[in-house]
Design a protein around this nucleic acid. Structure first.
Length: 873
RNA sequence: GCCGGAGUGGCGGAAUCGGCAGACGCACUUGAUUCAAAAUCAAGCGCCGCAAGGCGUGCGGGUUCAAGUCCCGCCUCCGGCACCA
């Protein structure tokens, strides 16, 4: 075949096997309809969050998750599964365009180059992807179907144009969705954003809010991620209640509350400053104060509004509302209407009833402005001072508390006293409904998905604007491709650069009438909302994905990636899947069954006594310490995110060049639990590299004259019983650990085996080494395929059946048990496995005789095959 | 403020069901090999103590024959949410 070196040489064997796998299409996944497809074979779909191909290339964080899914994929393949393990590129979007502007190139060019780099880097790592399924979201053959799906959403009324206020980011020259704006600043670039009413395309994700919430329960996702989605969806149950505005006959204020039962304690109302009623009900005397407050609130950025949240502010409108619990002419029901910026116009009805005795914010507000705080809860703490305060309303009581006796409707029909909170709410809502004053209501915080951007590098909408309104481009005209533009920079106006491509914009509709194209483009998350579906059937020109293919492959069995997509991509993908399901286009309701979040790979950094991180090139190692080169002062080790600024970024290419891909894969899996954040420690890398050398030496002699493999391995022979047991124990451990994604302990188990085998090297059999190579292969595939080949394993290791474990070999004949006196280990004794209780006690008592001398054993605990504990006084 | 997760040697981490804390790796120490170094191999390596022994999983209590693991109260760090009525 080729020149065979005797020492472990990853630089030679890794490219060799990568080429072999590629040329022979070893990792191709069979699809329904393929000639050799077998529907009986179980399937496994292992998916990575496909990367955004940035100009800086692969980061060590990428291979962390990719290695994890690759291990599972290779193991499943060996266990007889038909495995779908694809890779592609999330290639449309802002950063590519930003980079193109900076470097004065076209984003298509830069993206293609970056994709080439990523592909090359990933291929050197030996991932078992089915590269025939590769695509990028910016490929016309892909975004044709992204546009087609948009049409399906539009047909069902899930896509609409809106003029509502949206987040506009001047620096990025585009509008952004809620999940892309954090505290009023853009997630990407940290630029300030502001609310502006602009015509935009919006997707009606709110229609799916309840199902997106309910269906979370059955997913195998971490609780923290589910919590993030639940909080984002933000469901609240309660009621809407209608108040008349006094002296304004027909004017009514509707409020949303989660505690309608506390209506008895409502002593004022608050409208958001932007609320439509404000200008209508404000009295002449309050006109200027109210106008001033509204203006000031509008000028505040979102950030200022939340930052200044500590101190309540507000202005009285001069108007009064009437609490429907009281008779029309009862002055107790007459409560003032205020405006304040702690009430948010976009949530609920933008107006609240304020119950200072039951809500901390309302309490704070009432105290500051001297508004009445009517007590509505009965004392029950037993603490005199506290009880007095609760009863009089001097204390806010936000927990569930018994109602006061006077909580009774004016008609006497409802008395809350003695009821539970749930019953109180239910009865009061019933009363309000009967009175025509309100109804039960559920609200959600989630807003519809802002789906258009004023940028060039995205999917064009399949939309034409005509005098008659919006028309969708016919299916046979898809895809609508981007026009080639020299200058695609965003303009200063909130309008897409595509407006300058007038040749493209001006067109005709199907019947030849003049039309203009939609000039906004879709957001980056459009293409990533269904790529997992396309991977099932990526080369289909007639459908977005055949039903047979998606029925077979979906849902994704294992999805691995970072938490940064918790409320963006992961929610949008679930939404699109449900929408397509409702159209009968896919069978599943959820795309990702098991989701695993990898932790971030961090790096060590060094900080001075003030805590400032000193860049790596300004530090040096001095004995056991790391010191600042300029000052010579000792620095303290800390852990940070990898950052160019600190000079502690690790490039995977460097590791591959120095140690090989197998070492990189193994090291990243050995660092610690996949889900944990953990620091890269360059000093640990040679440790796993040594392990591979030791593994290699189990098979290959250093001296070429002694042969390709050790003489004793040339043919099979009797297996050494002790090694066979150690091997079975190891295989059992590794198999279970892969199943529970505990790769670090799996590797530790293999190290233990190699250590044992090294000590009795010439007792190893060929069969034992072949099986060892098989279980190591998912982690370090190249070295194992090479060992398999050299040892004369049948066919390719990749498709060799996973070794079986003989349960009988997992147990020893003798066990060592710990002997404790009063819970402290004082001796160990060796006993036959499953020795009787008496036998164990007798042996144990002898072993700790000196500890029991002069003492009275009052109790004896025997845990079979583990320990004996004497309780002696 | 609220909701999660975590805190174990010099470092990364292990302990899957309440049953021997520190697996495995790194670093370090000693020895073998070597002219020497690297590599490799062998041994040691939680803390205090000459030893016997004692102490030890963020802190303080508790349950238990037995607690890193369970309960109560705190501290610190990380992540998320945050005037959402």
């Amino acid at each position: 075949m080729d020149e065979q070196k005797q020492t472990y040489d990853p630089a030679a064997i890794e490219p060799k096997w990568q080429a072999f796998w590629s040329e022979n299409n070893v990792f191709r996944a069979k699809n329904p309809g393929d000639p050799d497809f077998d529907l009986e074979q179980p399937k496994f779909y292992a998916l990575d969050m496909f990367p955004y191909p940035s100009a800086s290339g692969l980061h060590v964080g990428h291979p962390e998750g990719y290695t994890a899914t690759d291990i599972v994929s290779r193991c499943k393949r060996a266990k007889g599964f038909n495995v779908l393990h694809p890779m592609g590129w999330d290639a449309f979007g802002l950063p590519a365009e930003q980079f193109a502007i900076q470097t004065n190139t076209h984003p298509a060019e830069g993206t293609a180059r970056n994709v080439d780099t990523f592909r090359r880097q990933l291929k050197t790592l030996g991932f078992s992807y089915d590269w025939e399924r590769e695509f990028g979201t910016c490929d016309p053959s892909y975004f044709k179907w992204t546009q087609w799906i948009f049409k399906q959403l539009h047909a069902r009324g899930l896509a609409y144009e809106s003029n509502a206020p949206v987040w506009w980011c001047e620096a990025l020259g585009t509008v952004l969705a809620n999940d892309e704006v954090i505290n009023g600043r853009s997630e990407r670039g940290d630029h300030p954003c502001e609310r502006r009413p602009l015509r935009q395309w919006v997707l009606k994700i709110t229609e799916y809010a309840e199902r997106l919430l309910q269906d979370l329960d059955d997913l195998d996702w971490s609780e923290s991620l589910k919590t993030m989605q639940r909080e984002w969806i933000g469901k609240s149950e309660g009621a809407e209640i209608e108040f008349d505005v006094a002296e304004h006959g027909d004017k009514k204020i509707r409020v949303f509350t989660t505690r309608p039962d506390t209506l008895f304690g409502a002593s004022f109302m608050v409208l958001a400053p932007e609320h439509a009623l404000v200008s209508q009900i404000t009295t002449a005397a309050q006109q200027s104060a109210v106008a001033g407050y509204v203006k000031a609130a509008a000028a505040k950025s979102e950030l200022e509004r939340t930052e200044l949240a500590k101190e309540k502010s507000g202005v009285w409108t001069g108007a009064y509302a009437h609490n429907p619990l009281f008779k029309k002419d009862d002055p107790k029901g007459r409560i003032p209407v205020w405006i304040a910026d702690y009430v948010i116009v976009t949530y609920g009805t933008g107006a609240i009833m304020a119950v200072p005795a039951g809500d901390e914010r309302d309490f704070e507000f009432a105290q500051k402005f001297g508004i009445a705080i009517p007590g509505i809860f009965a004392p029950d703490t037993g603490d005199a001072e506290s009880d007095r305060a609760v009863a009089s309303g001097d204390k806010c009581c936000t927990d569930e508390a018994p109602y006061a006796a006077h909580c009774q409707t004016h008609d006497g029909k409802i008395t809350l006293h003695g009821l539970s909170m749930a019953d109180g709410m239910r009865q009061l809502i019933e009363w309000l409904v009967a009175e025509g004053r309100g109804e039960a209501k559920t609200t959600y915080k989630i807003r519809d998905w802002l789906f258009s951007r004023q940028r060039y590098w995205g999917e064009p909408f399949p939309v034409l604007h005509t005098d008659d309104g919006v028309q969708l481009v016919a299916d046979d005209q898809l895809p609508v491709e981007l026009p080639m533009m020299e200058d695609f920079k965003p303009g200063g106006v909130p309008e897409s650069p595509l407006i300058r491509a007038q040749d493209w914009v001006k067109t005709t509709d199907a019947s030849g009438r003049p039309a203009t194209r939609e000039i906004n483009t879709m957001p980056g998350a459009a293409g990533s909302s269904w790529y997992f579906l396309r991977f099932c059937d990526p080369n289909n020109d007639n459908e977005f994905c055949s039903k047979a293919a998606s029925d077979y492959w979906l849902p994704v069995d294992l999805y691995v990636g970072g938490t940064e997509h918790a409320v963006g991509h992961l929610l949008y993908s679930r939404f699109w899947t449900k929408a397509l399901h409702d159209d009968g286009l896919v069978s599943v309701k959820e795309p990702f069954h098991k989701l695993y979040n990898q932790g971030m790979i961090q790096a060590f950094a060094y900080q001075d006594e003030r805590g400032a991180v000193i860049p790596r090139d300004k530090t040096k190692v001095d004995g056991d310490d790391v010191v600042h080169i300029e000052t010579g002062k000792k620095l303290k080790q800390t852990v940070t995110k990898m950052s160019k600024r600190y000079g502690n970024v690790v490039n995977p290419d460097d590791i591959v060049n120095e140690f090989g891909a197998d070492t990189l894969r193994l090291y990243e899996m050995y660092m610690g639990p996949l889900a944990d954040a953990k620091p890269w420690n360059q000093k640990d890398v040679p440790g796993v590299h040594r392990f591979l050398h030791r593994s290699w030496r189990l098979a290959v002699p250093e001296d070429a004259e002694k042969g390709t493999v050790h003489a004793w391995l040339s043919e099979d022979r009797d297996r050494d019983a002790a090694l066979e047991k150690a091997l079975h124990r190891m295989i059992h451990k590794v198999t279970g650990d892969i199943e529970r994604m505990a790769f670090n302990t799996a590797i530790a188990a293999m190290m233990i085996f190699v250590n044992e085998a090294t000590k009795a090297m010439d007792k190893l059999s060929r069969s034992q080494l072949l099986r060892f190579a098989q279980v190591l292969a998912p982690f370090a595939p190249h070295i194992c395929e090479e060992l398999w080949h050299r040892l004369g394993g049948e066919g390719l290791l990749t498709y060799a059946a996973w070794p079986t474990v003989d349960e009988k070999l997992l147990v020893d004949d003798d066990v060592e048990i710990a002997v404790q006196v009063l819970g402290k280990v004082r001796a160990r004794v060796k006993l036959p496995r499953n020795a009787s209780k008496d036998e164990a006690l007798a042996a144990a008592r002898d072993s700790v005789a000196s500890w029991l001398e002069g003492k009275n054993v009052v109790k004896e605990i025997v845990v079979p095959n583990k320990l004996v504990n004497f309780v002696a006084k």
